[in-house]
Design a protein around this nucleic acid. Structure first.
Lengths: 158, 158
DNA sequence: CTCAATTAAATTGTGCACAATATAAGTCCG
DNA sequence: CGGACTTATATTGTGCACAATTTAATTGAG
């Protein structure tokens, strides 16, 4: 039996920070957010707000739930986020007449115009990188995200 | 010249959400945190607190800055986080006598004992997964994190 | 020795994330 | 119609992240 803090085989210690895949995601996500912040600040957007804009630039007038489904965020995150974005003038929130439970999110003129500015962002952030490599990684991670969405596919409980 | 929202080649639209590598990291990190939460709750830890414990289980008695360097977090995040963990009884914070600017973080007996419980966590979280594949991905991401740490290695500005 | 510069941590203020709960609108069955 | 049920969003409360600033201890040049 092993005593705490005296693992006889520390290199195989399952709790070593560097061995945790989850930590690599956590660290990368935080560091990426920090790199985007100053670039997006010039568009008067936070990183999360930028993601919402990406969703709305693809299709304007979606309701809160549809945006949340796309970004894997719930209303506890989105409602205040969208209110801040409305205050900033990027979009407007209005109850759906057809179904008063829903809130439709529509870009303002300035919100639509902001897309032109944002077109530079991906280029700025990937400058000097191997685009083939980044795209391969993106595909790999898209698969990981897909697997995580399902709460992880159990191993076919044999 | 392209008009906003009417890109003639939408499949090559650089702003499509699914094409953003950053979003895959963001989504994966959030989803992973959600999967860990219920498992770690049984240890009375949040995900961030778990990471701090991993660092301290490797080496007890580090100061705030050393922990922050390891996790890529600053004192604005760590100070309140460590105070909460002290309240929970996982660790104690005490000024270093040698250098009164420093605060040394030491595990309590229960904090050390918690490691035994935590040993199950990596196994629970990776159950049913291809461990070779996860380790390959971990290595790839470790490289990405390393690159991000340097604020990204400029392309040797030729 | 003294005071400017540096370093370590804490504080302040903003903006996410998320679980849990609440509110209210729509649906459906008898 | 009417009440159970479901769906869509909002609210509440906690805990991060992080930039910017502050406080206090240490270092170091003159």
């Amino acid at each position: 039996m092993r005593t705490p803090l005296n693992d006889p085989a520390p290199c195989e210690d399952p709790l070593r920070l560097d061995r945790q895949l989850c930590f690599q995601f956590y660290a990368a996500s935080n560091l990426i957010g920090r790199l985007y912040a100053p670039v997006l600040a010039r568009l008067n957007l936070t990183y999360s707000q930028y993601l919402v804009m990406l969703v709305l630039w693809e299709e304007d007038g979606q309701n809160v739930g549809a945006i949340g489904k796309r970004l894997h965020l719930d209303t506890g995150t989105l409602t205040p986020l969208l209110k801040r974005m409305e205050t900033l003038g990027h979009l407007v929130r209005q109850r759906d007449r057809e179904d008063e439970r829903r809130v439709r999110i529509s870009l303002t003129a300035s919100g639509k115009a902001l897309r032109e500015e944002a077109l530079h962002v991906p280029e700025i952030m990937t400058r000097g990188q191997d685009l083939e490599e980044l795209d391969g990684l993106r595909r790999t991670l898209a698969g990981v995200v897909e697997a995580l969405k399902g709460g992880r596919p159990r191993p076919d409980r044999a």
